[in-house]
């Protein structure tokens, strides 16, 4: 479509609290992400990676700086406008899965469509297609409590995908999973990325970061280093890591 990058961060700062208790989490982050990229965000805790992800996910606004998403100046948008942006273009996968308890997998996946005003029939069809994509259609009627951690995260991914988002944001998607399940999830994300979805993922596990095409290293509220052009999906690919 357009030549402009999908995401542009320019001099993003974020300060929490005020006065003496103020804490500057981001000190001027510059970053561009192109459409179709698979980005792993890494860094020690407190380095600002989660804050950046919240801003990228339009959940939070920067204290200063510019964040352009699809050419839209997100920092100028209202709360509800950012909600509309999220429901239209973004899909979220959280470390804690964050599924609605006592609610079937199918209904969890249908949820974003509900807020888009889709009909009951369309919701069900799309949710089933999405569950099928992550291989969980047979578990559609199960509640989160009846599913394993890996399965729950697949439901969460299905929920994120059901609206055909441009960008999938995953915050430590494998944080609560064992290695085998983690690799399955990463493979799923890689496959999705191949269909054209841009993926932004926070992880502290190098093993998982190696699935990405781009790795962004954070340190002390700044982008320390960006590795681009990595061979995505190659488990054994090596690079110079921190």
């Amino acid at each position: 479509m357009s030549e402009a990058p999908l995401i542009e961060l320019e001099g993003i700062t974020k300060t929490f609290g005020e006065g003496a208790a103020a804490f500057q989490a981001l000190k001027g982050v510059n970053l561009t992400i192109d459409r179709g990229d698979f980005v792993a965000v890494m860094g020690p805790s407190g380095s600002g990676k989660s804050t950046t992800m919240n801003i990228l996910g339009c959940l939070d606004t920067p204290t200063s700086g510019r964040f352009r998403f699809r050419g839209v100046e997100v920092q100028d948008l209202s709360r509800d406008q950012r909600s509309l942006l999220r429901r239209r273009y973004l899909g979220f996968v959280f470390q804690g899965f964050n599924l609605l308890a006592r609610t079937s997998a199918l209904e969890n996946v249908e949820l974003p469509l509900l807020y888009r005003g889709e009909s009951k029939k369309r919701r069900k069809e799309a949710a089933e297609r999405s569950l099928d994509l992550v291989g969980l259609l047979p578990w559609a009627d199960h509640t989160p409590a009846e599913l394993s951690g890996g399965q729950q995260q697949r439901v969460a991914i299905a929920r994120a995908l059901v609206t055909d988002p441009d960008v999938l944001l995953a915050d430590e998607p494998t944080g609560n999973l064992d290695t085998e399940r983690s690799l399955e999830i990463m493979q799923l994300l890689t496959d999705l990325n191949k269909t054209g979805i841009t993926i932004l993922m926070v992880t502290h596990e190098e093993e998982m970061a190696h699935f990405a095409k781009t790795i962004v290293h954070f340190r002390d509220g700044l982008v320390e280093r960006v590795e681009r052009g990595l061979k995505a999906g190659a488990f054994a690919t090596s690079g110079e890591h921190v």
Binding site: S83, R87, N98, L99, L100, A101, L111, P112, Y115
Partner: peptide, 16 residues
């Protein structure tokens, strides 16, 4: 609260 967080994150408007 957590459920509300999920709903807001996936794009529910305040009025919804």
């Amino acid at each position: 609260t957590r459920e509300i967080g999920i709903r807001l994150a996936i794009g529910a408007l305040a009025r919804e």
